[in-house]
Design a protein around this nucleic acid. Structure first.
Lengths: 165, 165
DNA sequence: GGCAAGTCGTTGAGCGTGCAATCAGAAGTG
DNA sequence: CACTTCTGATTGCACGCTCAACGACTTGCC
């Protein structure tokens, strides 16, 4: 203990992280990375679908008339507009969605789910939700999940990301 | 409430996420993405250093003799071996570290911190830790941090990432 | 000792993403 | 109505990452 304190004094003007802080912080980084990679690999193996593609399909399925504007979609999944353009390109090429011109705003484009996309999502959702439960949700009680939700909200307020970059 | 239950029955064979679950899950995804981007941008702006580079320097600084084997480093920062090769290339080109042959194992390479790298890290650490505190650590009490640490540990056990891919 | 299998690090190819520039169209101002 | 300014979406480019393949070396086994 005292030994640890002594070596900490090599911080010249800076308060370093306590072990608890370090554990919470590095744990978060690793856990999130591990989760994302595991879920992505699972989805890829089972349905040949990337996590970002899955997210797009999910948002579309939940949206009015199964379609969304490109920019809304981009900010929903935290992707740049250019990144989304190409992602939608790929999904359209696979026939999972199609572009539809926007009548209100001639600049705009909708991405709209196709029947094939809806079916793909139906199949993938089972896999994905099972994974999310097994690797995350099932590890926590409802109270813990509420607390976690509160935590994220605090973080998101602080970083200021109600909307996108 | 009952209305919500009724609409949930559109899940044919599948239990969908409750609002609490959805909040905890999506919140985690967004919070982590927002944090990583904010911290990365901050470090880049202040010191022209990416988060992954910073991580490498940190691990080296904490290591015996300020050097680590390439593969250990790769698994520490959750990067593929080839990814690390190139990352170390960049850092070596900037003079922040150097490669050193390993005498025990002629296949091996060490990445070793240079004085310039040590100095760079010293400067960057202040920026980074301030950011981590402001956007994450300061938002939680010590008890909450402990609970979060426990949570990550559970997740990491479940995904099985003591070591790398 | 000699051979097979495994490991370490690097390289080439391919992919997904962000940034900056661009174009089309909308919205605000005189 | 003409003019500027802003926004939505796309494209070229550069970058960083992974995967697969490789060469160098180590380890285990007969």
């Amino acid at each position: 203990m005292l030994g640890a304190m002594a070596t900490v004094s090599d911080s010249h003007e800076l308060r370093l992280l306590t072990p608890q802080e370090l554990r919470a912080w590095r744990g978060m980084l690793r856990a999130q990375a591990a989760l994302a990679k595991a879920l992505d690999a699972q989805l890829e193996a089972a349905h040949g679908l990337q996590l970002s593609s899955y997210e797009v399909l999910t948002y579309l399925a939940d949206a009015e008339d199964e379609r969304m504007r490109m920019c809304d979609l981009a900010s929903s999944i935290l992707l740049s507009r250019s990144g989304l353009t190409r992602l939608v390109d790929r999904l359209a090429r696979e026939g999972l969605l199609q572009r539809v011109a926007c009548s209100d705003d001639a600049r705009g484009q909708f991405a709209k789910l196709t029947p094939a996309g809806r079916e793909k999502l139906r199949a993938a959702r089972a896999t994905h939700l099972a994974g999310v439960r097994a690797m995350f949700l099932d590890l926590f009680s409802p109270e813990e999940l509420d607390r976690l939700g509160d935590s994220w909200e605090r973080v998101l307020d602080k970083t200021g990301w109600g909307c996108c970059k």
